[in-house]
Design a protein around this nucleic acid. Structure first.
Lengths: 164, 164
DNA sequence: CTTATTGCGGACATTCAATATCTTTAATGA
DNA sequence: TCATTAAAGATATTGAATGTCCGCAATAAG
């Protein structure tokens, strides 16, 4: 039960893209360098985000990625699901139907209680992630991080972003 | 982010063991047959539960497993963690520290906000599982399942349980 | 005391995630 | 128009984790 490291990378990349001036793009290369992660693999995560409609990529020189929607309308859950898929963490295989003492005419209705509890927990997890947007993240970072750090990062990113 | 099928098996097995008369034991063989799952693999799951102190096994003929504690004191979370481990689902590798624009004297304090949100979601998941005990599960099953089904299962299990 | 039965731990195989490489496609700028 | 740059997609390779099985020690019954 472990989330892939791509989830962490995707969240941090989206955080950077959310801080970009409107319309500006940032390349996979710059994002990989900034986070110190392998570019070819990060590219896969960004592709997943693009396919999910969260970011959009542009080809050619001065190309790169930018958010496809306002940061306030992109949740942690969407980013996580773009990488991990939308399946629930608990898969019920209905093993209770394998009981050898089950008679042919005995009907079992509805999902089993074990699965219902596990799915309830899953939904609680999703609810937290659904309630947090990229805008919330940016606001917290701006409030908590030292000013010079933010300025340095903005300058570094600004020097590598392009387009409009 | 998928829980192993062992989690499902472990929960259902504990549910059966919780319905056993006090002191009675049930073998891996019977549990595997009842759920229609491979016995050698189920054995591993039961071993994990035993190591976590949730159930205890007895060797020899008429041996088998029984709950190590009252059903009301064993939660879904403990069973899940016995199989999956106690690690959080999101692992923060602090990739923010890899930023090339970070100066040597710039200090970053505390866990990053991305991790904090993911851990908050994780905790919400745990809270639900922590609130559900095996006794709760048994109560719901007895209330919802047809009486004859329960009687059939109890008879089947009773014929294969032993010890005291 | 022997024998059958059981849990226990370790060994094997198979799958899947993580990583890298290469080709293709498309857009920019000279 | 052409060279350059970047995303998109396909395809290995490695390594860890998951699923599967087998032999050993312990125990109770005959």
């Amino acid at each position: 039960m472990q989330l892939r490291n791509q989830v962490e990378w995707a969240l941090h990349c989206c955080s950077i893209l959310a801080g970009l001036p409107p319309g500006q793009r940032l390349s996979t290369k710059a994002l990989a360098e900034f986070h110190g992660v392998p570019k070819p693999y990060l590219s896969k995560a960004l592709q997943s985000l693009a396919q999910a409609g969260l970011i959009e990529g542009t080809l050619g020189p001065s190309g790169g990625y930018r958010l496809a929607r306002p940061a306030a309308e992109i949740s942690f859950l969407e980013i996580t699901e773009a990488i991990e898929g939308r399946a629930r963490s608990f898969a019920c295989t209905e093993i209770r139907r394998n009981a050898p003492c089950l008679r042919a005419d005995e009907q079992i209705s509805g999902p089993c209680q074990v699965a219902r509890v596990m799915w309830q927990a899953d939904e609680a997890w999703r609810a937290v992630l659904r309630s947090q947007s990229l805008a919330d993240l940016s606001a917290t970072l701006e409030a908590e991080l030292p000013e010079r750090l933010l300025a340095d990062a903005e300058a570094w990113v600004g020097a590598r972003s392009a387009g409009g």
